[in-house]
């Protein structure tokens, strides 16, 4: 985190260089626009979706994309477009909630470790390093398999895999902040450590955490889709993107639309989050801030 070493003489992060840089970086608007569109489609899925996503209709099974069914139907005759729209709700909410939990728990651990230091720091960061040594997908797979795949358990499984990176990201700037004059001043005024961490340190490192959050939400959505593809997703008949690909994979030779559309949905969502995360990172990193 070189950010803090460099900016130690200018504490005015509040003048919001992030927004300014986002405004300059036109590429980032593609990400924001795409993400906003996907979120809106997910929220209004019940109003937009032309059919019931889980209603089977054997007469129309495996219909190729046509005027009645824009994205075709699956082997149970269910409308792929409707399932995609409802699937967006599952992917986005699991991704968002998992990252939210990971962010809160991970940052809290990181700030505490950085602020308290000593043995506590060593123990927490030791555990964080171990967590990072498990391949994300395998750790998620293991936890999901142990707990049993369900909406809540998937959130827990993915949140556990993503807590460690947040602790890492929160700890380094906390250590840098701890030595800054305004924190020293607060301490000498007798503020409690909790108050210092909450009011003086957290707001100053929040932008770093938010950047990581958008990149890890991309990863969370990828993990959820991968787990669903392996067979550890929210149980059928609920529509999930990964699950749709899993089911469509059996008919890949005859019905391409069953895998192509959910694949594009996953790709576009992850891409939108990655573009946004990249743009945010460029915006707050002074090394690249003036180059965008």
């Amino acid at each position: 985190m070189t950010v803090f070493a460099i900016s130690s003489s200018m504490p005015e992060r509040q003048s919001n260089p992030v927004l300014a840089a986002l405004r300059r970086n036109r590429f980032s608007w593609i990400g924001i626009g795409l993400l906003a569109l996907i979120v809106l489609l997910a929220i209004f899925a019940p109003m937009i979706a032309p059919y019931d996503p889980i209603k089977q209709n054997i007469l129309h099974r495996l219909t190729p994309p046509a005027a009645d069914f824009w994205f075709g139907t699956d082997s149970y005759g269910r409308d792929v477009l409707s399932r995609l729209l409802y699937g967006a709700r599952i992917s986005l909410s699991i991704g968002f909630l998992a990252v939210l939990i990971a962010m809160v728990v991970g940052s809290a651990l990181g700030i505490l470790a950085g602020y308290i230091g000593g043995v506590f720091d060593q123990v927490v960061m030791g555990i964080v390093d171990v967590m990072l040594s498990f391949p994300t997908l395998l750790l998620g797979l293991m936890i999901a398999a142990m707990l049993g795949a369900s909406f809540e358990n998937l959130i827990i499984a993915i949140a556990i895999t993503e807590t460690a990176p947040f602790a890492r990201v929160a700890r380094a700037p906390t250590i840098a902040m701890k030595r800054r004059d305004f924190v020293e001043a607060g301490r000498s005024l007798g503020f409690t450590p909790l108050r210092i961490m909450r009011l003086h340190i957290l707001p100053n490192i929040l932008s770093d955490i938010v950047v990581v959050a958008s990149l890890w939400m991309a990863s969370a959505i990828r993990t959820e889709a991968s787990l669903a593809f392996i067979g550890l997703g929210v149980l059928p008949p609920t529509a999930t993107w990964g699950g749709m690909i899993r089911e469509g994979f059996d008919n890949i030779l005859s019905a391409w639309w069953l895998v192509v559309f959910p694949s594009l949905a996953i790709l576009l969502t992850v891409l939108a989050l990655n573009i946004l995360g990249d743009a945010l990172r460029d915006a707050i990193d002074p090394k690249t801030r003036n180059q965008a």
């Binding site: 889709a225 593809f229 890949i252 895998v259 790709l267 992850v270 573009i275």
Partner: peptide
């Protein structure tokens, strides 16, 4: 490279298979 990084391994695999 941004597109490449956004692909879950199985999605790109399936599209290439197709």
């Amino acid at each position: 490279s941004l597109i490449g990084l956004s692909f879950p391994g199985f999605v790109s695999g399936i599209l290439m298979l197709l």
